[in-house]
């Protein structure tokens, strides 16, 4: 585990650094977007990690936890770690999207379907983390959180469709330029691909670290509990 963590850590830092260097200095500016196109090496990869990877992983681990055959506290911890890291990524997705939106659309925020459902998903994530903080027996908490994750996952398509219809019916023409990401070639495409790999690796590293912290904390509590029990028992024998 230690080895995997080190390898993942070194790899993710190196890949992200390479992505930044290529994205900021090596790739050429775009014909339409100019310098702004450099955000394409950051924002879509963050969104991919937050919306698909983190959320999918949390939901998958929740199902694996609830399934009696694969029930293990590990899945509960993995699910929680994915959500916690996912919240960081979803926040950055919204921030970078907003920074990109300001010069492109002229506003920091627009009630576009994708933006709105991303924000709602972020609030759902936060609700999950709030639920985790409710003091309860670990088993009870794990079951509650797994069920909450599944509820949220089921809610996502409903949210998506209602928001898409709400937006399109409300505004008529969308302010989002469908050609926002113009066709890209060569080095730009490779850098874009690299950004996805880099941030996926970074996500894996962070989730694994978070998971490991939780594992160590649980085992530490177990050790402390057995020690306290032994101490009490020794007192009983002595008296």
């Amino acid at each position: 585990m230690r080895r995997t963590l080190t390898i993942l850590g070194v790899a993710s830092v190196a890949l992200v650094a390479l992505d930044v260097i290529l994205g900021l200095w090596v790739t050429p500016p775009d014909a339409d977007q100019g310098e702004l196109v450099r955000l394409v090496y950051l924002h879509p990869a963050l969104a991919w990690v937050a919306l698909y990877l983190a959320f999918g992983m949390a939901a998958l681990c929740a199902v694996l936890y609830l399934w009696p055959r694969t029930r293990s506290m590990r899945f509960d911890r993995l699910s929680a770690s994915a959500v916690e890291v996912g919240v960081v990524f979803i926040g950055l997705t919204l921030i970078t999207g907003s920074i990109w939106g300001r010069p492109t659309w002229g506003v920091w925020w627009t009630w576009d379907a994708r933006l709105t459902s991303t924000a709602l998903l972020g609030v759902l994530f936060l609700g999950y983390l709030a639920l985790r903080r409710v003091p309860a027996d670990p088993e009870v908490r794990a079951r509650r959180c797994a069920i909450a994750a599944i509820f949220a996952a089921v809610d996502v398509p409903i949210v998506h469709f209602s928001v898409v219809w709400w937006q399109t019916l409300h505004q008529g023409a969308t302010v989002l330029n469908p050609n926002l990401t113009p066709t890209i070639h060569g080095l730009m495409a490779w850098t874009l691909l690299l950004s996805f790999i880099a941030f996926t690796t970074l996500f894996a590293w962070m989730v694994l670290m978070r998971f490991q912290i939780e594992e160590l904390r649980e085992s530490g509590e177990d050790v402390e509990l057995t020690r306290a029990l032994e101490a009490r028992r020794a007192e009983g024998v002595a008296s």
Binding site: L120, V123, L124, L126, G127, A130, L131, A148, F151, A152, D155, I158, V159, F161, S162, V163, W166
Partner: peptide
């Protein structure tokens, strides 16, 4: 906090 984001589609629809 838990239920209001979930019922957002009900509000919209």
């Amino acid at each position: 906090v838990l239920v209001l984001p979930v019922v957002a589609p009900v509000l919209i629809a």
